[in-house]
Design a protein around this nucleic acid. Structure first.
Lengths: 186, 186
DNA sequence: CCTTTCATGTAATGGGTTACATGATTCG
DNA sequence: CGAATCATGTAACCCATTACATGAAAGG
């Protein structure tokens, strides 16, 4: 665990993390970086394709070309041994906490400028959103837990399980916070 | 509460939120956007000065010039009535949840690639960081709560109090999550 | 036949960090 | 007298979003 110069960006490690779980096309990666992984790290395809090219240039990923359906060939990427080392290294590396940017809290921080009635509406909308996410996480966690591999610390599903558990706990705390806030306008 | 075209960026509303609590120089704003406000919205002075110029151009803030200490004049900014309206409007406006980017969770999501011993170390470091933040939030909350104005929904300290309370709850949940995780490698 | 999905890229723009640049006052 | 603080700005670069662009196969 030491401070290190990275060969890949944060997005690069998100992609390596996906490829460590299985080979995929840029298109596949873009979809997973919208939905399951996107809960904590989102990205669009326009960002993913150039990053894949960089990772390939650094030898952290490699690809086979299949004759594609569109105008270009389809590239199926996989992580290389060097990529696996880089990923594991990065997981264990120390890094100082990055600057946070939470739009919901920023909004609440100025909520004293509106009437209590408006304020309560804002909190209720936020509460509903947290509730939706909580339900989604719970459903996904149930699915992951149904697989016995999710108990094995060296299996990807183990990591899926603990990150989902974290999301769940965070959302539950946020819901309780919203309920508490609603009691604060007398 | 309707979807609206904003006159200011998110950073702009962070600045308006600060100025709504009192006049300040760009330098003052930069400091508060590092420490207390930086817990949920951080920014550097190189971003703040141009944004202040934009806000002034849009008539949302105004400034008085004092003969400054350095090579340039010191500008003390205050929010205008139009700025107050824009801020309150924005607080009540709907906006779809922005893409999340949480480096800590991204890292844990690939933790299955390292040995259980290394993994536990990673979680312990994260746990310590959450503990530190919790302590800081608790101290700040105690200070805010000592002021009776923090109970008045139309006073800025009310909003400081509820956002700190949220930070506290989130950190507490994160700590419990870390403790739970540590039980997961048998 | 039309829409969705698969599949890949590039260009323009905006947001944010790091580094460059200047200089007076205050504190040790 | 040197370092920290007050105080303001600009420039280069990186990261991310939106929009532009193309085209085949599959499904309704």
């Amino acid at each position: 665990m030491s401070l290190r110069e990275s060969t890949a960006s944060n997005l690069g490690f998100a992609i390596l993390g996906l490829l460590a779980r299985g080979a995929a096309t840029g298109y596949d990666l873009a979809q997973r970086l919208e939905r399951p992984v996107g809960y904590f790290w989102a990205a669009r395809h326009s960002q993913i394709y150039p990053e894949l090219a960089r990772l390939a240039g650094a030898g952290l990923v490699a690809y086979d070309e299949e004759a594609g359906r569109g105008p270009r060939t389809t590239k199926r990427y996989r992580i290389t041994p060097a990529g696996q080392v880089a990923l594991a290294d990065w997981v264990a590396s120390e890094f100082e906490p990055q600057p946070v940017r939470d739009l919901e809290v920023l909004r609440l921080w100025s909520i004293w400028t509106v009437t209590p009635e408006t304020a309560r509406k804002v909190v209720q909308v936020a509460r509903a959103r947290h509730g939706e996410l909580l339900a989604r996480y719970q459903a996904e966690l149930a699915e992951v837990e149904s697989d016995p591999d999710s108990g094995d610390p060296r299996h990807p599903l183990f990591a899926s399980r603990i990150t989902l558990e974290g999301g769940l706990r965070t959302r539950r705390a946020a819901l309780e916070w919203c309920d508490w806030m609603l009691t604060q306008w007398e």
